[in-house]
Simulated assay, not measured.
Amino acid sequence: MNHPTRTLLTLICEAALQNRLVKDLEQLGAPGWTLSDARGSGSRGVRSAGWDNDGNIRVEVICNRELAERIAGHVQERYYDNFAMICWLSDVEVLRAGKF
């Protein structure tokens, strides 16, 4: 079975950015997003779980490639220099293409 392809944008960043990122996603036209807490270890050390400012969040957006790249470029320009953040894009097959 063939399914339409969209792009999954995944961001993992400091929880302190949550409100700003939600506002950015709304302004940039994201069709929706999923936010969850995240924990792990990386170049900036171990990050605890939780929704306080010490934790990390994971933000996922499924959309067309052009929008995913625009959002990724925006967060890189605005936040990469001053916040712990990683971002990647993946091609995904979707079952309800009209939602994305």
Rank of each mutant, 00 (worst) to 15 (best):
M1L: 09
M1F: 10
N2E: 11
N2M: 14
H3N: 06
H3A: 08
H3V: 02
P4F: 06
T5G: 00
T7V: 09
L9T: 10
T10W: 03
I12N: 02
C13P: 06
E14V: 01
A15T: 13
A15C: 11
A15D: 06
Q18K: 12
Q18M: 11
N19D: 15
N19E: 14
R20T: 13
R20P: 01
R20Y: 05
L21P: 04
V22N: 09
K23M: 14
Q27K: 11
Q27V: 11
Q27N: 12
A30G: 07
A30V: 01
A30I: 02
A30R: 04
P31G: 04
G32Y: 00
G32Q: 02
D37A: 12
D37H: 11
A38W: 05
R39A: 13
G40R: 04
S41H: 12
G42Y: 00
S43D: 12
S43W: 12
R44E: 09
R44F: 08
G45R: 06
V46G: 04
V46Q: 06
R47T: 09
S48A: 13
S48M: 10
A49T: 11
A49R: 10
G50L: 02
G50Q: 03
N53D: 12
N53E: 10
D54N: 12
D54R: 13
D54Y: 06
G55N: 04
G55Q: 08
G55M: 09
N56Q: 07
N56E: 08
R58H: 05
V59P: 01
V59M: 06
C63A: 15
N64H: 12
N64Y: 07
N64F: 03
R65H: 14
E66Y: 05
L67G: 06
E69D: 10
E69P: 04
R70F: 01
I71R: 02
H74M: 10
V75E: 04
V75G: 01
V75H: 00
V75L: 00
V75D: 04
Q76D: 08
Q76E: 13
R78M: 14
R78H: 12
R78L: 10
R78T: 15
R78W: 04
Y79L: 03
D81L: 12
N82F: 03
N82T: 15
N82H: 11
N82E: 08
F83N: 11
A84V: 02
A84G: 09
A84E: 14
M85W: 05
I86E: 11
C87Q: 10
W88M: 03
W88N: 07
L89S: 02
L89H: 03
L89R: 01
S90I: 00
D91R: 13
D91F: 11
V92L: 03
V92F: 00
E93H: 08
V94P: 05
V94F: 02
L95N: 09
R96N: 15
A97N: 15
A97I: 00
G98F: 07
K99F: 09
K99C: 04
K99G: 05
F100K: 03
